[in-house]
């Protein structure tokens, strides 16, 4: 054991296992560990999905040109614009393609002249300020659509979701800290005679604290192990039920889902130490 090895008589003398609430502590850690694990997995998956979507959105840039721009002008200027560092490729949409694009939004898309549309695939290396300046120099009436406003609003929504999840995790951690404090207090008070006798025999504060820490560690670790298994099963079921998520369930999702509940064990141990440190001095 990480807090030292103890003789059976010492473990039995001051054992929290007699306390009903402490016996249920493992189940509590399993449930809250599962909540935290799934929450974290969801958080990381969302980040992955958002990251991929954002990358896709940022890598596309569309120019809408007025109908009076000639195809020759477009051809010449697109060559100039394509020479910019960060422009991977470009494509001038045909009128048929543009009409197909517009059809869902305009019932009579076939009856009016369609704008010329040029799509660019770009990377982060593109200097947008210079590029946009050149576009407006070459096509003064051009409209540049780069999904920046959409990106911003989606980013806000994603961050808000992550914030709520983190707040929920915080609440879960607080519940664990509260329960541990309560259980240790009640358990040790219920065995004040044993604790006092151990002190009379020469048990030091650190010995008594380690004796209780060991028991909490064992229960919390057991709870963590069970919750990790249940989280893994839940994630596997999600992958089967929602195959589109598989691409985003990277190792980081699994690692985070397994590690965050470890935080519950750490919180439980920290709270036990804090509670015991004060309690042993009161006897």
């Amino acid at each position: 054991m990480i807090f030292g090895t103890f003789d059976a008589s010492a473990r039995k003398a001051l054992s929290l296992n007699k306390d009903r609430v402490f016996r249920a502590f493992t189940i509590l850690i399993v449930i809250l560990g599962w909540v935290c694990g799934i929450g974290t997995a969801g958080l990381v998956t969302l980040e992955n999905v958002y990251g991929a979507w954002q990358l896709k959105q940022r890598s596309q840039l569309t120019l809408y040109l007025s109908t009076d721009v000639t195809n020759k002008e477009i051809e010449e200027h697109v060559v100039v614009l394509s020479s910019y560092e960060g422009v991977e490729s470009s494509k001038v949409l045909t009128d048929v393609e543009t009409r197909a694009l517009l059809e869902p939004y305009f019932e009579n898309a076939q009856n009016f002249p369609v704008p010329k549309v040029v799509e660019f695939d770009v990377t982060q290396r593109l200097n947008r300020l210079q590029f946009d300046g050149k576009v407006l120099e070459l096509f003064p009436t051009a409209e540049i659509d780069d999904a920046r406003s959409v990106l911003e609003s989606v980013a806000r929504a994603v961050r808000a979701t992550q914030g709520v999840t983190l707040a929920l995790s915080g609440i879960v951690f607080a519940i664990v800290a509260f329960v541990v404090s309560l259980v240790v207090r009640a358990g040790v008070r219920g065995q004040s005679k044993s604790l006092k006798m151990l002190q009379y025999m020469g048990a030091s504060d650190s010995f008594l604290i380690r004796l209780i820490l060991n028991q909490v560690f064992l229960r919390a670790s057991l709870g963590w192990a069970f919750s990790t298994v249940i989280v893994a099963v839940t994630l596997l079921m999600m992958m089967i039920g929602l195959p589109e998520l598989v691409a985003y369930m990277r190792p980081s999702v699994w690692i985070a889902a397994a590690l965050v509940p470890v935080g519950l064990v750490i919180v439980a141990l920290g709270m036990t130490y804090h509670t015991m440190k004060h309690m042993v001095k009161s006897f």
Partner: peptide
């Protein structure tokens, strides 16, 4: 070594465990 008037043995421990308790403060017997 302390002997109390009412013996103060821990009721949930056997006689042997009660007697071994002072030695158990140093780790497993």
């Amino acid at each position: 070594g302390l002997v109390f008037q009412d013996s103060n043995l821990l009721p949930h421990l056997s006689v042997r465990e009660n007697v071994a308790l002072p030695l158990s403060l140093h780790g497993p017997l």
